[in-house]
Each structure stands twice: as C-alpha cells, then as structure tokens.
Design a protein around this nucleic acid. Structure first.
Lengths: 365, 365
DNA sequence: GTAAATTTCGGGAACGTACCCGTTTTTAGG
DNA sequence: CCTAAAAACGGGTACGTTCCCGAAATTTAC
C-alpha cells in the first residue's frame, strides 16, 4: 500500500523555481558556487513545498557504509551473551543503512581487551562498542581513537575520564541504594548486614558500595554495615572470605552480593543452612539462580539488563553515526529488581543460553 | 569513512554467471520466466558471493511509503504522554524507510476510540497502533481492518479475542503478583490487606487481581485479602469506598492500588494519618507521587513503563511492515518496581510533562 | 572597451534495483 | 521439418540524489 502523497523532492523545488537540480543541491548543502540570493530562494521554496530528502536515494548515491566494531569479553557468560544479543538485535533491525559490524570477543575483562583496542588503526571504524577493563590503562587508546573520529561507546563499564563519546550501563549507585532499601524493608529487627563485592577499584563496585552504605544509613538505620568483603572475582577467595565472615558474625541478618559471581557465597550459605534465614540479595541473573529465587531462598536479584544495555548502546551509536546526534555523556539504565513473582518474565531469556562465537562477522543492513 | 568491501550486488552475480541482471532479478524474486536450472545456479552463486540486496536501491526503486496511524487517548495524561513519546522516539530513529505517521488522540479511553477506528477505510493504513477501550466492542473493527491487510497493534491494553496482530503491554498478572510479594515481605506480622482497583471487567485489572490473590495466598500466607474495592476510575467513588474500607477495617496493614488513579485513596490515607503506617503500593508514576515516595509515605509503585511500551510497539510494527517478521501474539513487559532509592532514575522523565497535541502530523524518514 | 578571471549555473552520468518490452531460444503440434 | 506458441532471457529505463565538468553569466583587470 502506498497511499499518502509523497513529499516534495529536490526536482520539485527546482522546477518550482525554474532552476536546475544541481543548483538546488548546492544550495541545500551549503556548497560554494551558488548566489546567496538564489540560495535563499531555494531554501524558502523548500520550506514552502515541505521538501524531504529521499534518504534511500541519498544513501544509494553516497553509498556510504558504516563500519562498526563490537569488542566484548566472553566472561561473565551469563551477562555478555545477552548483551551481545542486544547489540545484534539492534543491528538486525536497521534498514536502509549499509554497514559492516565486526564482532570480536576475548576471554575475560582485562585479558586482551587493551591489545584488541590498540590494534585498531585510526579511522578503521566509524564506531566501537566495548567494555573497558581497566579504565585508566584504556584511556590513551580511547582518546587516540576518539580524536581520529571514531565514536567510542563504553558498555557495561565505563572509562569516565577518557574522551569516549558515551557510556551505557546500569546505575551502580542506585543498585547499591536499592539493595540497602530492600534489606531495610525485609529485615524488621535491628541487625547487621554485609556486602560482598568484586574489586573496589572497579568503578562500578565502588559506586554500589557508596549507594549501599549511604542508603543503609538513611533508610535502614536499624541495620549496621559490616566491613566490606572483596572477593576479587575469585571463587576460592569468595568461599574463604564468606566462611570467615559467617564465623565472625553468625548473627548476620542480610547479605548483598554486588557481583554476578555470587555462587560461591550461596554455596557457603547453603552448607551452613542459612539460605532462607538470611536475607540475600544478588546481582544479575543466570540459570543457577532461578531455582533459588523460585524457592524463596534468596530475596531478589538486581538484574543489570544486559540485553537492554547492548541494544541501547547500538541504537545510540547508530543514531550518532547517521544523524550526528550526540548522546548524553552517559546513559544509566535502571536495574530490574527480580523477585520470585516477576522472575518468569526474565527467566526465559536467561535459560536459553546462546553461545558466544568468536567469529569475525559482517552483515549488511 | 567507507572502508569495508561492499558485498556482492545483483550485477556481480549476473556477471559471475554470464547472464543478465534481469534474469538474476527474476530468480531472486521467484518470478515466472526463468529456467529452474538457471534459478538454482543463480541462488547458488548468490550464496557463494554473499549477495546482499542494497536496500537503499530497492527502496528507491520501489518507492514504497508506509502509512501508519497512532490513535491514543489523552487520559491518563501521565501515562499516554510518555507512551506517545516512545512511539515518536522509535519513529524518529528510522532511516531509509519512507513513511507517514498520523497521530490522533481522543479524550479518554472509551470516548471516541471506536468511532476513530471505524472511520478508517480498508487499506488506508499499513499499520495502526491503538488502545482498545472496550475490547469486545472493538473486535468487529479490528477484525475488518486486520483482514483487509492492516497490521493492528494494541498497546497498553489488549483485545485478545480479536484478530489484532499483536499487543504490547505490561504483564498485569505479574504486577499483581509482585504487589502481593512485596506486601508479604514488608509486613512482618499477620494482618489484612486490600486491593483497590478500577474496573474488574477491564482485563488488565482482573489479571492484576488474579496475580495478587494467588500470590498473596502462596507467598504471604500471614496476610488475608479483604474484598476487592472497585473505584470505577471515579475520584468520588474512590474517596467514598476508601473511607468505607478504612472504617470497617481500621487494622488494615497494606493497600495495593492497581490503577493509576490512586490520588483519592492517598488523600484519604493522608487525612486519617495512615500514610507511613499502612504499607501502600501504587501503580504508575506521576508528579504527585514523587514526594510521597521520597518521603517514604508509600512503599513503592509499579511503573508500567509507558515510554518503553510505545517504543516497543512501534518497533515491532515496523519490523513486520518492512521485513514481514510476524511478532509473538503478545509482548508482555516487566513492570519496574520504583522505590524511593531508584526513583531518581524515573522521576526525570515524569516531571517533564510534554503536552499531547491532537494535531495531524506526517514525517518522512 | 576587451580579455581574463571568477562566479554562477545546467547537463548528465552514476549509485543498485525493479520491471517493462522486445528478442531469442525452446517446446509443441501437425 | 516447418510453424506457432510458449518459455527464457537481455537491453534499457527509471527511482531521487550527488557531483563532475563544461557552458554561460558576471565581475575584475588592464
């Protein structure tokens, strides 16, 4: 069906003024070689006739191809797989823009990401979506590429002091704050709570701690915060530290695990028969967590919506590349609080774990 | 920047086989007049050369224009304004597809929506996004338009027994379930809770009740559910009913208001000095709710994410119109649980209330 | 005043695809 | 084996835009 009068094209404007198409084109694009008066007349007529450039024709003629790189870690699988799917989903639903997307992965954050970024020559890509492992060390590369005109988009993590164009992530402070408020609401009597995190020198984790501590004091004054436990994302370390924590504070009323690596902590709680007695808040969602939520063994998990992060990052990047609309310095998504009752809405996507392939791919769109 | 080798075009395939472009085109489109063997060779070569149709060229040649209607109520303002913004946002970020979008609004659900739909001639639009007021009464129009080839997309509400293509809304059952679980977690002692809804013959509200009742029994057996209160979306009725409720059950421990029209209920609670003592859960987010959440007077609100609903609905519709990808029968979004601590992430969008204009608009994209 | 330099403009090709129309090849029928 | 009909295929144009190149108009220089 193609009802609806088509808006005026460049040749309609030319005909209305009795001038050539070439001149109208020059006027529209502020190119040299057109009399200022003529230009004014053209613009006025364009306005009057409601001129709309036919983007299909423009793209065809210009034949511009966007070149985009997506470099992500494979670990943590349950997080970066859906994130990548989000990027793909957004990339797949682009029509009318020719582009090549190069997907690459590396084992885990901090292992090879820097080398991968550094291998990008100036001007090779129009945009790069990536997760900065060590923000400080990444800065030089990010700045170099940014200055060479490559739009750098951080996702899941951030390098705020670099010259990246924008960053998409979940608001970490709010995650921490939410955890504090939830524990405050669900632990009626006074008691003490603990936070188990990954590495505090990772910005996100530090932010979560800030949010947690501040809001615990504010919204749950009956709860006291024990010293933070850093697991350094190591299962052994997490096991040891958690056992230590529980030995020294057997009366603990709540635990907030602010990293997705929560399984070791949960195992210790399980073996000490504390699951269900201690209020536990986790981070992110993966298959092992589902039965625990369903059984009410843990209160909730703060889902960082990797799919939405990937999708959003790509949309923002594309919008900039096509329309030169500069995004905000950062986009902070709201985490989803997943309880037992709303779990079914999230569990489906998590259960179907697609594999991350390290292949080099390209697609047109 | 336009690095990246362009994929094979139709003429590359033709040249590789030593045949004409026209024949390749016929083969690709299953048109008559091509030898089956030739067709097979063409398809094989296309595969081998990684043929990708240039959508810009195709669109230019076909010159198809999509015609889309978006018919929404103005009331409830705080909900449908962002919903419309979501639609607009999605429509604005479409490149390479020429389309006309006709936005129209009517005062409130049930007032004029049916007439508006009925006024659409067969084949006038490729797709329609709308909110069915009375599902049963809307069915005939929806079916007529659907059969005539118009993709009908329900948003915010649904007409599940009609032949609409798909529907986008928040999962109402889960909303109710979530409310039950939250009250269960935050009310430690046994007590009774009430649900105040709009109209139970509206599918959404009935679903919320189902979810609430079922999960209250399951997850919060210490709470008993009082008879449901129907406010019929009338402020006077809501005031009267709420006063009545509180008089008969002064010991009430929690209230779940499952309609966005929660202000009358809150006013009664305020005047009886119960705000902060009774756990209150609301629905949706509007300016008046913000200070109440900030002050901890109400526990949380179940935000139905109108912006996301609008955006999603448009994306799904466009995807179908362009790529003929049929969506699921329905898309159920997860409501956001907005507490005091994560309120800032939502409050901004709510505070800036853009006006809904009833103008007829068109835009190219 | 004329020639040269400069500005302003128009003609026309090309981007990759779809499709009309005319030409060639194959098949059927006697 | 010839003819006619049908099937298979190729040439060429158009979609709306961009942009090169050359022509025309205008300004500048002497």
């Amino acid at each position: 069906m193609d009802r609806g009068k088509k808006p005026a094209g460049i040749k309609d404007v030319a005909r209305a003024l009795g001038i050539s198409i070439a001149t109208v084109d020059r006027a529209f694009h502020d190119r040299a070689g057109v009399n200022p008066k003529t230009r004014a007349r053209v613009l006025a007529m364009a306005q009057k006739l409601n001129y709309r450039p036919n983007l299909a024709a423009r793209n065809l003629k210009l034949n511009r191809r966007l070149s985009i790189a997506v470099y992500l870690p494979e670990q943590i699988h349950s997080f970066f797989t859906p994130l990548l799917e989000g990027v793909r989903s957004a990339a797949d639903s682009v029509f009318g823009v020719e582009m090549d997307v190069e997907y690459r992965t590396y084992p885990r954050m901090g292992e090879g990401d820097l080398a991968l970024l550094e291998s990008i020559p100036d001007g090779r890509f129009d945009g790069v979506i990536f997760t900065p492992g060590d923000p400080a060390k990444s800065e030089p590369v990010i700045n170099r590429l940014s200055r060479s005109g490559t739009a750098m988009v951080c996702v899941a993590s951030d390098a705020p002091h670099s010259e990246r164009m924008t960053a998409v992530s979940v608001d970490a402070y709010v995650s921490g704050a939410l955890a504090a408020e939830l524990l405050g609401h669900t632990i009626p009597r006074s008691g003490s709570v603990a936070m188990i995190t990954g590495e505090l020198h990772v910005l996100d984790h530090a932010e979560k701690l800030r949010g947690f501590a501040a809001n615990l004091a504010l919204l749950a004054p009956h709860l006291s915060l024990l010293p933070v436990v850093e697991s350094h994302e190591s299962p052994q370390e997490a096991l040891r530290q958690t056992r230590n924590l529980l030995k020294r504070h057997p009366e603990i009323a709540g635990i907030y695990v602010s990293t997705a690596n929560s399984l070791p902590v949960l195992r210790v709680l399980e073996e000490q028969q504390l699951l269900g007695k201690v209020q536990v808040l986790c981070t992110d969602l993966f298959p092992e967590l589902i039965p625990l939520l369903e059984g009410g063994r843990i209160l909730a998990t703060l889902y960082q919506r990797p799919f939405a992060q990937g999708k959003t990052a790509f949309e923002i990047l594309l919008r900039y590349l096509v329309e030169r609309i500069r995004p905000e310095r950062a986009t902070r998504l709201a985490p989803h609080t997943v309880f037992r009752s709303n779990l079914p809405l999230f569990a489906d996507r998590v259960r179907s774990k697609a594999r991350v392939t390290s292949a080099l791919e390209a697609r047109g769109a």
